[in-house]
């Protein structure tokens, strides 16, 4: 399986990538005549909503922030062809203008504003479900530019460029657990640990999807804001000790607070199913239409638990389901269908 940035030419048929940067310029062109072009390819995975989303103190200010639950089931791949002689930048599909803004942003950061060219995006991340299709495209596009130009930017800089292009972005460029301010694109707290090895039985609860960015941001009460403080305290401990059960509790508490803003139909029934199947918790895309039951992948009863969860969720008419492992060490080849 091809991962991260791949150079020129062939796209993987079914990209299930991890965002990764490489740095070698790729120049094409006819010797001695005609413009030379820089070509690069970048890929980025999707995510599965958030383990935690809310408002958090950052140096005395309260900022919106989230902890992404990574998902390598789906991904985006971007190919860029840049040239100093091209007058304009364009994108295909045409409506993916955020990725185009991201290309402008990264060219600006590299001092290459004069370049034009063409960005092509391919991917299988469903739009409007909260799987991060837009973040995935934008991150892949930025990585493609870096690949084409042979330049390097730190992940913090890439995240800010993505946030500026997107209004709110998920930190797909990082390979570890973070509390991330999705609107400013800055790290509120770095937990310095890889994503947890949680087994996720995911499901969709609305086939329509929604325009994730036109959805009004949640207005949290003061109790909720202080409760996020408590959740953050447990998160530090859970990440440090690798306590998956505690991560499950955090996800459920965060999902519960979010019910006021974007409810999951039959949420209480989903909680019952989670308890019956021995799930660690219920996790949602806080501005999307997917959710998941979280399991400890190391438990011998996992297969039985996941199968029961799938059955019970179907009984609640959540028949569009999938399953994967969110751990950083687990690549796409580990994907099993329920």
């Amino acid at each position: 399986m091809e991962m991260g940035v791949s150079r020129r030419g062939v796209l993987p048929d079914n990209p299930r990538p991890t965002a990764l940067a490489e740095s070698e310029p790729h120049e094409e062109g006819h010797e001695g005549a005609g413009p030379e072009a820089l070509v690069g390819i970048g890929t980025a995975p999707s995510h599965h909503g958030e383990l935690l989303q809310g408002a958090f103190e950052d140096h005395g200010e309260i900022r919106r922030g989230l902890v992404t639950l990574p998902c390598s089931l789906f991904g985006s791949s971007a190919t860029i062809r840049l040239s100093r002689w091209e007058p304009e930048l364009s994108v295909r599909p045409k409506w993916k203008t955020k990725s185009l803004s991201a290309v402008r942003g990264v060219l600006g950061a590299l001092g290459m504003e004069g370049y034009g060219g063409r960005l092509e995006l391919h991917g299988d991340v469903a739009v409007g479900r909260g799987l991060g299709s837009s973040s995935s495209d934008v991150t892949a596009a930025i990585l493609a530019v870096l690949s084409a130009t042979g330049r390097h930017l730190p992940p913090e800089r890439i995240a800010r460029i993505a946030a500026a292009a997107e209004v709110a972005t998920d930190p797909l460029i990082f390979d570890r657990m973070l509390l991330f301010a999705q609107r400013e694109g800055v790290v509120i707290e770095d937990f310095h640990r890889p994503a947890p090895s949680l087994e996720v039985v995911g499901f969709a609860f609305d086939d329509q999807g929604l325009d994730t960015l036109s959805w009004p941001p949640a207005r949290y009460t003061s109790w909720e804001i202080e409760c996020f403080r408590a959740l953050r305290g447990l998160l530090r401990r859970a990440v440090e000790h690798g306590h998956l059960a505690e991560l499950g509790r955090i996800a459920t508490a965060s999902a519960r607070i979010n019910q006021r803003f974007l409810p999951v139909p039959r949420f209480e029934r989903v909680l019952d199913v989670a308890a019956e199947c021995g799930a660690l918790g219920v996790q949602v895309a806080h501005s999307g239409t997917i959710a998941g039951l979280l399991f400890d992948a190391r438990r011998p009863e996992l297969e039985r638990q996941a199968a029961l969860a799938g059955r019970r969720l179907r009984e609640l008419h959540f028949s569009d389901q999938w399953r994967y492992n969110a751990g950083s060490d687990n690549h796409a080849s580990d994907v099993r269908q329920p």
């Binding site: 996020f228 408590a230 953050r232 447990l234 401990r237 505690e246």
Partner: peptide, 20 residues
């Protein structure tokens, strides 16, 4: 109502040091 709400930092400390 901000009186009870003000104790979020204590819950944070307890959870960080003791877990649930």
């Amino acid at each position: 109502p901000l009186n009870p709400v003000s104790y979020g930092a204590v819950a944070e400390l307890l959870l960080e040091s003791l877990g649930p």
